[in-house]
Structure formats: structure tokens, C-alpha cells
Write a protein that binds this DNA or RNA. Structure first.
Lengths: 109, 109
DNA sequence: AATCCCTGTTCAAACGCTGAACGCGCACCG
DNA sequence: CGGTGCGCGTTCAGCGTTTGAACAGGGATT
């Protein structure tokens, strides 16, 4: 698929480290290589990320995965949306914990 | 698979309603019929739940999915474990939210 | 030229999940 | 007594997602 979490995590990682390889990104985010390639391609299809060929000073060829202006805008939007979702999740877990605590308290009096 | 969440939810549901059909249980927990059947069978294989043939007063045949003594013990264990995991998750989300808030604050000054 | 290493890309296989379909047994009715 | 309907548990082909081994390409090193 391509969830908001994927979008957020990838855009954030690329914002800070546009010079990582797909393998490094995958490892950093805990994604498989295939999934990362899929997600990255999706971001590029949307025009949020642009791959630029570049070579390190004295090293191999590689790509630079840079956020486009549209990507920067989108990253801001996704971040706000993701935050809101996390806040809701947080509240829900709080209730769940309260219920679980009562349950544990009752089960061995 | 069969996560702690599955174990907890099913054991809890059965503790309160041993007389529900698999379809009713699935609907209540938001599981598909196939998944519920799989999970329930797993609990029975472990010896935590026992299916007893019974017939409602003036109705059809059905099963009673009752927790065994071992099942009651296990339910208590799983509940504690599940609570602990939720507390950790809660703390982690709290940190994540804090980071996201700072990120949002910085992105449109 | 040959070898090595690190790229990005691909895609068959594995996995988890779904829900339509099936067989069974009971209750009701003609 | 047969027929029909209903709800039950069970099954499994099909689906969408995910995995990671395998591949092709290009620069560096020998």
C-alpha cells in the first residue's frame, strides 16, 4: 500500500539524509528492500521526491533522493496529519490501559 | 499468526460470552470468520478453551466455548503481559508525539 | 581485462487474511 | 415422512501485501 506512516517516515528520512542508498534507508526504517523501493517509487511518481544522479567525491555512483518543493509541502501536511492520528491513538491506548488495569486488579484479589 | 492481542481479546470475549457462535464472535471482535476460526482452534489446541456441545433451551445445536482452568490462568497471564506491552507502547507514542509537535512547530515559522 | 563492490530493480515465492461455499443437524411445515 | 430453511463449524481458492535472492550496470582497483 503506502500509508501515512510510510509517507512520513520516508519523507523525514530523506529530508535529513538524501544521500543514503535504498538498502541503507530500508535498514534504517526497518523496511525490506522491496518495500522501500516500492514506497520510494511511489513518492517519486507523486513528484515529491526527485532522484538525482551524483557521485560521491571519490566513490561510487549513487542517487540523491531529494525532496522537491512539492515534497516539502507534502511532508508538512503529512506530518500534521500523522501527529493528529498519533494523538488519537494515544488517547485510545490510555483508555485501554485503564480497562486493563482494572481487569488485572480484579483477577487475583 | 496469533498475537497476544488475539489471545487476550478472544479469551476475554469467551470469558464473558461462552455461548456466542463463531460468526458472532468474529463480528464482535472485528475478525473475519476464517481468522476467528483459526484463532479459536489455536486456543483449543493449547487446551485453554474447550468446546462443549450443548443445545439452547428451545433452539439449535451450538457449541459452548468455555475457558478451561488452564485457560483462566493463561488469560490472567496474557492480560498482564498485554497491559505491560500497552504501557510501553503508550510511552513510546508519547515521545513520538513530542517529537512530532516540535517538528510541526518548526516547519511553518 | 578481470575482479570486486555497491548501486537500483525485479519478481517468484511466502504469508496473512477473506468470505463464499460446503456438509451437517435440528426445527418446522405440508 | 419427505422437503425446506436456518444456523452451525469448517474449508480453501483467491487476493493483496511483503520478502529477499537474484540480476544487470557501472565505477574502482588490481
Amino acid at each position: 500500500m503506502l500509508t501515512d506512516s510510510d509517507r512520513y517516515q520516508l519523507l523525514k528520512a530523506l529530508e535529513h539524509n538524501p544521500n543514503l542508498s535504498q538498502r541503507q534507508l530500508a535498514s534504517e526504517l526497518g523496511y525490506s528492500l522491496g518495500k522501500l523501493n516500492y514506497c520510494l517509487k511511489a513518492l517519486m511518481d507523486k513528484g515529491w521526491v526527485k532522484a538525482e544522479n551524483f557521485r560521491t567525491n571519490q566513490n561510487k555512483t549513487a542517487y540523491l533522493y531529494q525532496l522537491t518543493p512539492a515534497g516539502i509541502t507534502e511532508k508538512a501536511r503529512v506530518t500534521r496529519r500523522f501527529l493528529q492520528r498519533k494523538v488519537e491513538e494515544h488517547q485510545q491506548i490510555e483508555q485501554e490501559i485503564e480497562a486493563l488495569k482494572q481487569e488485572v486488579a480484579q483477577q487475583t484479589p
